[in-house]
Amino acid sequence: MLPIPEFPPLLTGHAVTAGQDPLQVALESARDASFGAGDLCWSMAETHARAAIVLEPDCPLGKALQMVPVLMIAIGDALGAIGPPNLALMYRWPSTILVNGGEVGEVFLHVPEDTGLEDTPEFLVLGFSVAMSLPPDIIEAPGLARHATALFEEGCGDLDRTQVLEAVARHFLSWVDTWEHDGFAAAHPDYLGRMQPADKLVVQTGPVTHQGRMVGIDEDGGLLLDGGGRVEGLSLAQGLGIIG
């Protein structure tokens, strides 16, 4: 059995069994006010590093959504610090983590219902999942999940779930402090710098499909997409499904 993660003092860890979703546990506990800012649910599963943090932002939802790219940057920095030097870690807008071109993780956000972008949410639940190992059926038949990978498959066999959870927590708190003082401008170069270049990107926002080539990330973390001679902007709220 792996050791229990030790989190920075501003975070309070709560273990959930391998069969539970830490995001759902944190969401339900935030709704009934048994959890508040800084409570972190983490999964005891060893195949993934999974956790969810309760946040209580003091800004409108439209700005608080920037916690998604901030957490992505924290994951990138954490894996860069504890992983092998040749680990090619990148992002796909708005919330996917890639290693050597394969999907290794995702960042998730739950927002209270009926919260508008101009409203200050009572709470947010921000979560992530990073695959440590692939299921046996995928290893034996890789064609079942051609785009998926895991840290163990990418040369990170010395890492475990606990190390990843601890490192992500540390880097996330550091980036939140930077964001609070300097805004998203401080995070923008790191977010953009690890964006995976793609000849064609397909983004679904509600019933609308957007296709084109990424030409940049705007000052709020939104996507700038060239759909063939015309550049359109897609906000984080659109990308995360908060609005259509």
Rank of each mutant, 00 (worst) to 15 (best):
K63W: 07
K63Y: 10
L65H: 01
L65W: 01
L65E: 01
Q66P: 06
Q66E: 12
P69L: 00
P69T: 07
P69K: 03
V70N: 00
V70K: 00
L71M: 12
L71A: 08
L71D: 00
M72N: 05
I73Q: 00
I75M: 03
G76R: 02
D77Y: 06
A78D: 08
L79D: 05
G80F: 03
G80C: 10
I82G: 11
I82H: 07
I82N: 02
G83M: 12
G83S: 11
G83W: 11
N86W: 12
L87Y: 11
A88Q: 14
M90H: 11
M90L: 12
Y91T: 00
Y91F: 15
Y91V: 06
W93C: 01
W93V: 04
S95A: 13
S95F: 04
T96E: 13
T96D: 15
I97C: 10
V99P: 03
N100R: 13
G102I: 08
E103R: 14
E103A: 12
G105W: 00
F108N: 01
F108S: 02
F108W: 01
L109C: 05
L109D: 08
H110L: 07
E113M: 09
G116P: 09
G116I: 04
L117P: 09
L117H: 11
E118I: 05
E118G: 14
D119S: 14
T120G: 13
T120M: 10
T120A: 07
E122C: 12
E122D: 15
E122F: 05
F123I: 13
L124M: 13
L124D: 07
G127A: 07
G127K: 00
S129I: 09
S129Y: 00
S129G: 15
V130S: 05
A131L: 09
A131P: 02
